[in-house]
Computed example of a mutant assay.
Amino acid sequence: MSLHSPAVAKEELPFNTARLDALMDTAGLDVLLVCSKHNVQYMLGGYRFFFFEYMDAIGVSRYLSFFIYEKGRPEHAGYIGNPMERDEKQRFSHWVHESDLGSWKSVDAMNQAIAFIRRNGLAAGRIGVESAFLPADAYNALRAGLPNSEVVDATIVLERLRAIKTPQELDMLRNASEKVVDSMAAVVATHGAGATKNDLVHALQREEVARGLTWQFCLISMGQSFNRAPSDQIWQPGDVLCLDSGGNYNGWVGDMARMAILGEPDSELQDLLGVIDEIQQACRRLIRPGTLGRDLFPEAQALVDVSRHKDYLSFVIHGMGLITHEAPRLTPNGSVPYEASDAALPLEEGMVLSVETTMLHPRRGFIKLEDTIAVTSNGYEPFGDGHRGWNQAGG
């Protein structure tokens, strides 16, 4: 079934069409065939079909939706989705001109996308896809259905488009970060001796959901152990606790890490967290428009290198937004490996960074701070910047 929406002016679209067209032109793309949930949501201005929020599998195939964009012609954009989205479209009327809502299987969705591309006279163009998110059966259908087209990866194009956040998107990230940190503080304040890692993670999930977040994960370490999986390990007096959690607000991710302790932090623990904070601040004060991404590292890394704890200290920066570790990508040496394609480029207003320093102390355990920092017109703004010291258990 094909549904039509009235045309929308470019200035009313949820993304910058001039920026996207320029990125596509540089990559030599005629059409984008977007299929990842986060990028479909981004291109549609926040829409994500609730029924398949947690799982794509259904029957013998999977849910697969497409946003289709022709360079320079947003009025020709299309959306391919599931029949049940007809009800959702009445509630959330996204802006695309044409929607085909008739696919239950991945190949069916691709065949509808192929038909859309043919109707618009683009069967011989260069089509950008998200290679890591496109199922093999759908890719094979695309190659068979459009044999005269050239299919290339467009992941970086979409990453670069999302790298500059709008004020509304920054508000979402600010909310997500603050709600994650507030949830952590509430859990620490209401738990104490005898609580297990499982207890704390379940409580954190409840706190985040109660604040309007979609729960994603919690990496939790306790005592001298570096194991960050939830378990029945019990919080003992004197044990440090690291909560590293992600929850999203309307799709935008808050990913923060804060420390707690059962009891009073001694002078050594105060010093250790102080070392971490000093490294964090060395990076943070350099964040401003025009700073090259690679120039955020030397001062902080120098503090790591001269520290007597250097053998178990690490420092990294990565982009934040609809996913963790998105553009700008500044280093190939972090915990998540990828090419540092933005390291030689200047920071721009609206970019958002996650700055994190981790210490795996052989006696005191896992100690970490992870902060979310937005690049502003004259510097930076931290999101969710509270509770960065030792939070004491209250239960």
Rank of each mutant, 00 (worst) to 15 (best):
M1A: 04
L3C: 07
H4L: 12
H4D: 12
H4Y: 13
S5M: 09
S5I: 10
P6L: 12
A7L: 14
A9P: 10
A9T: 13
K10Q: 14
N16F: 13
L20E: 10
D21G: 08
D21A: 10
M24I: 06
G28P: 11
L29E: 02
C35Y: 10
H38D: 15
M43A: 02
M43V: 01
F49E: 10
Y54T: 11
I58P: 07
V60S: 13
S61T: 13
R62D: 13
Y63I: 06
S65N: 10
I68Q: 00
K71F: 00
G78M: 12
I80Y: 09
I80N: 07
G81D: 05
E85Q: 13
K89R: 15
K89H: 15
H94Y: 15
H94P: 01
V96M: 07
S99T: 11
I114Q: 00
I114T: 01
A115I: 04
N120E: 11
A123W: 03
A124T: 11
G128T: 03
E130H: 01
S131F: 11
F133V: 05
A138G: 08
Y139G: 10
Y139S: 12
L142C: 01
A144W: 02
A144G: 01
G145V: 01
N148T: 09
V152S: 12
I156S: 14
R160E: 15
I164K: 11
T166F: 12
Q168F: 09
A176S: 13
M184V: 07
A186S: 14
T190I: 06
T190Y: 07
A193M: 15
A193W: 15
K197M: 14
A203V: 07
A210Y: 08
A210D: 10
L213W: 11
T214L: 14
Q216V: 13
L219C: 10
M222I: 08
M222Y: 05
Q224N: 12
N227L: 08
P230N: 00
P230F: 00
P230T: 00
W235P: 06
D239E: 05
D239K: 02
L241W: 01
D244L: 13
G251R: 03
I261Q: 00
G263F: 08
P265R: 06
S267G: 09
E268Q: 14
L269S: 07
D277K: 00
Q280F: 01
R285C: 10
R285S: 11
R285D: 12
P289T: 07
G290R: 03
G293S: 04
P298E: 02
E299G: 04
Q301L: 14
H309Q: 06
K310I: 08
S314D: 12
H325A: 15
A327I: 06
T331F: 00
T331P: 02
G334D: 01
V336L: 05
S341A: 13
A344F: 10
L347H: 02
E349V: 09
E349G: 06
R363Y: 12
R364V: 08
G365L: 03
F366Y: 14
I367D: 03
I367L: 11
L369I: 15
T376C: 02
S377G: 06
F383N: 03
D385A: 15
G386N: 08
N391F: 07
